[in-house]
């Protein structure tokens, strides 16, 4: 294991994870007021009307795919009787659909941000950094899904390499060998993804953690007291 490898496959991931966790905690503690989706819909609604949902639903599906691909070990899918080829077609087709929808939405969103002067004006540097990382991540992701999985006779099995390494990181026994031999495209995707996670707490991406599921089933009207009732007073 060279120093470079240790840096790329051990230090980078753990630094990114730490930044993610500590950064989120710090941001939440110090900047609840800045925690928002920072929507620009009030400036431009037409393109956002289709591109926003397409991008977000595509991205959510892709995230789901990542969770399955990275977290579920091969032994498990095999144990439930799913053959390698079934898994491959499932992941390739679902991944391709999610990727295509996400890309369509993303292109719409970037187009609107670049061309609508009002939206453009609200774009911060950190937004640009996020957009840049997303371009790389989504681009490589689609390349992998289409070129290395869907449209090839010899699909690349990331579950033997990338996934093993990813899970080994979570158990604090990093398996560098698993990723070392992986396909270069996958390696680059992984490294850029760490940059993405490290940036996450400091960008408006945090709104992703605020999906308001608590709304479901909540009573509609909320009341709050300004002052706590004095002792002995009924509420």
């Amino acid at each position: 294991m060279s120093a470079g490898e240790i840096f790329l496959w051990i230090i980078v991931p753990y630094v990114a994870m730490t930044t993610f966790v500590v950064g989120l905690w710090w941001r939440y503690r110090t900047d609840k007021f800045g925690w928002t989706s920072h929507s620009t819909q009030i400036f431009e609604s037409k393109i956002l009307g289709w591109a926003g949902p397409a991008f977000h639903y595509g991205a959510l599906a892709a995230i789901g795919g990542h969770v399955i691909g990275l977290m579920v070990p091969k032994s498990l899918t095999e144990a439930i009787g799913m053959s390698e080829s079934t898994y491959r077609w499932f992941s390739a087709i679902a991944g391709a659909v999610a990727g295509a929808v996400c890309v369509a939405g993303f292109v719409g969103l970037v187009y609107r941000r670049a061309t609508d002067p009002r939206v453009r004006r609200t774009t911060s540097r950190i937004d640009i950094a996020v957009y840049f990382l997303l371009v790389v991540l989504i681009g490589l992701g689609c390349l992998m899904t289409f070129a290395h999985n869907l449209l090839t006779t010899n699909p690349y099995d990331y579950r033997d390499s990338v996934s093993e390494w990813w899970r080994s990181l979570l158990t604090f026994q990093p398996d560098v060998e698993a990723i070392e031999g992986a396909n270069t495209v996958y390696q680059v995707h992984a490294i850029v993804a760490w940059a993405f996670w490290a940036l996450f707490p400091f960008s408006r991406l945090v709104h992703a953690l605020s999906i308001p599921l608590q709304y479901l089933g909540r009573p509609y009207i909320l009341y709050r007291r300004r002052f706590a009732p004095a002792p002995g007073r009924p509420r």
Partner: peptide, 29 residues
Amino acid sequence: VASCPSGAMYKREEDGIVLVDQDKCRGWR
């Protein structure tokens, strides 16, 4: 208040004033 998914809006019990909690609003609109 009923439309706010984050639960950031509320009606004050004491005087009925309807307010937005700026710390809880996530900009869902």
